[in-house]
């Protein structure tokens, strides 16, 4: 489980070296989009239309922030549940998205898409919103303003803490780690 400081856009070399469980501090531009924006974007892709923002080679952060208080860059923000974006993710990876950031396990379709298209599904800690908001240095709405908290935002982040959950080699961190701790206390005879 290595530690890396990486910059966006992620190179294919970066992606190939990442293994599940690696910790990444990510710096650079990322794009925030979640349920409603994905529905619209995948409809555009299916119709052969261009997306409102060029996301080829980019990293998408599945999230919707609180409004900023005066003087704040962004309100509290952390990833939303990634599995709701699973039906859209293979199409987005095929289009050229190189990484996604969410929380929680995902379906096999995402695992396979990461392997097939050379991409990563990262995990950040859900609900770590106060801490993570400090790693965002700027934000602007770049599409779908009408969606409010679900609009597409362009963010500049610095040392944004991530774990590699699904790598480009078909590995799954959730599956691997849960198996280690199933009945752990029972087997060790530890009472709770």
């Amino acid at each position: 489980m290595a530690e890396y400081q990486l910059k966006t856009p992620l190179s294919d070399e970066d992606i190939q070296k990442l293994q599940i469980g690696d910790q990444v501090l990510l710096t650079g531009t990322i794009y925030m989009a979640r349920d409603a924006a994905h529905k619209r974007m995948v409809e555009l892709l299916e119709a052969g239309q261009p997306l409102p923002v060029d996301l080829k080679g980019e990293v998408i952060f599945y999230a919707g922030p609180c409004p900023p208080k005066p003087g704040q860059v962004i309100g509290p923000v952390a990833p939303t549940t990634a599995f709701r974006m699973d039906p859209f993710a293979p199409a987005m990876y095929e289009y050229g998205v190189k990484g996604t950031i969410g929380k929680g396990p995902r379906r096999d379709m995402v695992k396979q898409a990461c392997k097939e298209f050379g991409a990563i599904s990262f995990a950040a800690i859900g609900g770590l919103s106060t801490i993570l908001s400090r790693r965002v240095k700027s934000q602007e709405v770049v599409a779908y303003d009408d969606l409010g908290p679900e609009a597409i935002r362009k963010l500049e982040v610095e040392d944004f803490p991530l774990l590699v959950a699904y790598d480009a080699h078909g590995q799954d961190l959730y599956e691997q780690e849960i198996a280690k701790y199933e009945n752990y206390n029972l087997n060790k005879g530890v009472g709770i």
Binding site: P76, A78, I125, G127, L128, T130, S133
Partner: peptide, 24 residues
């Protein structure tokens, strides 16, 4: 590590009067 960070997040939210989680 996650549990430690959750404690820190709760403390930061409290001190800065900010939502602990963005999903309010």
């Amino acid at each position: 590590n996650i549990l430690q960070q959750l404690v820190e997040n709760a403390e930061e939210a409290k001190v800065n009067h900010m939502p602990y989680c963005h999903d309010t």
